[in-house]
């Protein structure tokens, strides 16, 4: 029986994650997310990466930080790219070119722009075709690589360079898409939300996903030092507060059954999370806008509490 979770000692014996020398901003948490995902696999991992921060900072030729086979093609097509890799693997196994007993876990990494927006069609297609891969979204809630432009993952009220907080318009005027629910609507065997702050939960989810044949999806919140505006030592704290305020609930939909994986004993008001970030500072004297964010969170949280333990079709 395989272990559902790993101790950090066990994880450290499996992987160091990305190699040193990559050019992610100081304090960027996505290398930790990569470490947890790669270390969770019991088999070799082959990675496809969408264009974005993670791809750019880890593979500036001739330097690459990836210790595993890795492919990048374009921004909007990571799910199609991994579909091709996974299909070739199957074809080559069937034709006897690749050993039939070889097991590989295929992982696609995409940011929110490459997932919620430009890559949504490709992701939807790959899930509908039931390719065997895990899609990991690192969600930093804007187009950070190009300099902090709003995406459909950007929360209501957030200041970005294309939703600037101005005299008339207070940052982004729309709420973000609920990507996990959109993906889950494809009726895939496993979809989840996780946070690097709750590492045991993230590793368990990755390991659960790797057990399942077919398309899997894990959305991981990935705070962004320059994009969100906070001290670089606080990335993990920002991720933790997103969970504690229920802005980013930790839950999973495993073969249609909803499970809330973490219920904060003391659900913090979202203001605690907002006030730590420069992108929301213009909201602090607009309580009605903070209320709007809070209401949206409460609504979803109520829905998740109700769904907890239920099957989608129940």
């Amino acid at each position: 029986m395989k272990k559902k979770i790993l101790s950090l000692k066990e994880l450290s014996e499996r992987t160091y994650g990305l190699a040193s020398g990559h050019r992610a901003c100081a304090g960027c948490p996505f290398p930790s997310i990569v470490k947890m995902i790669l270390g969770s696999s019991d088999y070799p991992v082959v990675v496809a990466n969408a264009t974005g921060c993670l791809e750019v900072v880890t593979t500036i030729f001739p330097y690459t930080a990836w210790p595993v086979p890795w492919i990048h093609s374009a921004f909007e097509n990571v799910a199609a790219t991994i579909s091709g890799v996974e299909t070739a693997f199957k074809a080559l196994q069937n034709k006897g070119v690749m050993p039939a007993d070889r097991k590989v876990n295929f992982v696609a990494f995409g940011g929110d722009g490459g997932t919620y927006d430009i890559g949504l069609q490709s992701l939807s297609g790959a899930m509908e075709r039931r390719h065997n891969f895990l899609y990991v979204l690192y969600d930093n809630q804007a187009y950070m690589n190009t300099g902090i432009q709003r995406s459909s993952a950007t929360p209501f009220g957030a200041h970005t360079t294309t939703s600037p907080a101005g005299k008339v318009i207070p940052g982004k005027v729309q709420h973000r898409k609920d990507i996990t629910e959109i993906v889950a609507a494809h009726d895939i065997p496993y979809a989840a939300q996780a946070s690097p702050s709750h590492w045991g939960d993230l590793i368990r989810k990755a390991r659960r996903a790797f057990e399942i044949e077919g398309p899997k999806f894990i959305a991981v919140i990935s705070p962004c030092v320059p994009g969100w505006g906070y001290d670089e030592s606080e990335s993990i704290e920002l991720a933790r507060l997103a969970v504690e305020t229920c802005f980013w609930p930790l839950y999973e939909i495993d073969n249609g059954i909803y499970k809330l994986n973490y219920k904060p004993k003391n659900k913090l008001p979202v203001k605690v999370w907002l006030e730590k970030q420069a992108r929301f500072k213009h909201l602090l004297d607009k309580p009605e806008l903070i209320d709007e964010i809070q209401n949206k969170i409460d609504e979803k949280w109520k829905k998740l509490l109700w769904l907890d333990g239920k099957k989608v079709e129940d």
């Binding site: 492919i71 790219t81 693997f89 070119v97």
Partner: peptide, 11 residues
Amino acid sequence: SVCVGASASGA
């Protein structure tokens, strides 16, 4: 894109 992924896998 699938062709690229598959061809880069040796297929």
